[in-house]
Amino acid sequence: MDWLLTPGSGASAAALRAEVTAFLRRHAEQPDDVDDARLVVSELVGNAVHHAGGPVWVSLDWSQPRPLLTVHDLGPAFELGGLSLPETASERGRGLWLVSQLAKDLDVIAKRGPGKRVQVVLALTRRAEASFDPPRRQLNPLPAADEAGPGGFGKEAFLRALVVELARSTEAAQGPAVAEQLVAQVGATVGGQMEEEYRQARAVAGRLTPEQVADCYLRLKGAIEGDFYVISAGPDKIVLGNRHCPFGDTVRQAPALCRMTSSVFGGIAARNHDDAVVLLDERIAVGDPECRVTVLLGEAARTNPGGHHYRAAP
């Protein structure tokens, strides 16, 4: 789940805290245990709003038994140091010390450009159930009026709007789990066709090597005006960077669209290496200056518990 908080104000932070807390309460195994998590959310979001200014993105990854909460902002990073209970008269440092007592693995990670992400593992476990939790929307990610030319909106703006609104409408009607499945299926299907085009263009038969898989990624993303490049490609994993999202600035208002990249990359990798895991390590969608995507292959994917998992069809 991803939320965008803008503008950064006390009122909007309180509304976001209430929504994240409600999500946790709906899906926690013990709803009465959510109060500590609510304080953690409140402190981290409040700090981002107070010290960073600008947009704040909140991500919650509950693919593991305990949820990982990440708060992204564009403010300066800082060192945690040794957290201890501040002096009684001190007005600073209490929030992070409290977070460190109520949750685990508190960490501050500087982005490669301006900004940071603060992440922590919440002391909750999730019930085994489907999720139906449409996030609130404050911004419209559809094309702005100034994108139109003399004859109206162009094909690119229209198709982008179509994809975004289909995903949003599905999410509103049936929940983000269904929307995510839809986006993943679309990405896998389109990725399969793009792989076939790559094979014809390069005259490749049989399984693609990791280097060929990476080359296929660059070809298909370049065709839709992404700016991906290969950082490394080996037998166990492929690491890519990206300087420009095909969805443009829209993706900062709809971070869930990153799942499209995940499913395209994961589907191609799994078809050629049986199993794949895609890790979205950095995302333009949450304020990072570039994207960084790691694709684990074969045994490395099977033994990795996180990320988006993909398996070749029988």
Score class of each variant (00 low, 15 high):
residue 32 D to L: 12
residue 33 D to H: 15
residue 33 D to V: 04
residue 33 D to F: 09
residue 33 D to Q: 14
residue 33 D to K: 15
residue 34 V to H: 00
residue 34 V to A: 05
residue 35 D to K: 15
residue 35 D to I: 13
residue 36 D to S: 15
residue 37 A to V: 06
residue 38 R to C: 14
residue 38 R to K: 13
residue 38 R to L: 14
residue 39 L to W: 15
residue 39 L to I: 15
residue 40 V to E: 11
residue 40 V to P: 07
residue 41 V to A: 09
residue 42 S to P: 02
residue 42 S to K: 05
residue 43 E to M: 07
residue 43 E to S: 09
residue 43 E to D: 11
residue 44 L to P: 02
residue 44 L to N: 07
residue 44 L to H: 05
residue 45 V to E: 01
residue 45 V to I: 06
residue 45 V to T: 01
residue 46 G to N: 03
residue 46 G to F: 03
residue 47 N to R: 13
residue 47 N to H: 05
residue 48 A to G: 01
residue 48 A to W: 05
residue 50 H to M: 10
residue 51 H to R: 07
residue 52 A to E: 10
residue 53 G to N: 13
residue 54 G to S: 04
residue 54 G to I: 13
residue 54 G to E: 07
residue 56 V to C: 03
residue 56 V to I: 14
residue 56 V to L: 11
residue 56 V to Y: 04
residue 58 V to F: 05
residue 58 V to R: 01
residue 59 S to T: 11
residue 59 S to R: 13
residue 60 L to Q: 06
residue 60 L to K: 04
residue 61 D to A: 15
residue 61 D to I: 13
residue 61 D to C: 11
residue 61 D to M: 14
residue 62 W to I: 07
residue 62 W to N: 10
residue 62 W to E: 12
residue 63 S to A: 15
residue 64 Q to S: 14
residue 64 Q to G: 15
residue 65 P to L: 04
residue 65 P to V: 07
residue 67 P to S: 00
residue 67 P to G: 02
residue 69 L to Y: 02
residue 69 L to G: 05
residue 69 L to C: 08
residue 69 L to K: 04
residue 70 T to C: 12
residue 70 T to H: 02
residue 70 T to Y: 08
residue 70 T to E: 11
residue 70 T to M: 07
residue 71 V to H: 08
residue 71 V to T: 04
residue 72 H to W: 15
residue 72 H to G: 04
residue 73 D to E: 03
residue 73 D to K: 00
residue 73 D to C: 00
residue 74 L to Q: 14
residue 74 L to W: 03
residue 74 L to F: 04
residue 75 G to T: 08
residue 75 G to P: 06
residue 76 P to L: 07
residue 76 P to T: 12
residue 76 P to R: 09
residue 77 A to Y: 00
residue 78 F to N: 12
residue 79 E to V: 04
residue 80 L to E: 09
residue 80 L to M: 08
residue 81 G to I: 05
residue 81 G to Q: 05
residue 81 G to L: 08
residue 81 G to F: 02
residue 82 G to V: 10
residue 83 L to P: 07
residue 83 L to M: 12
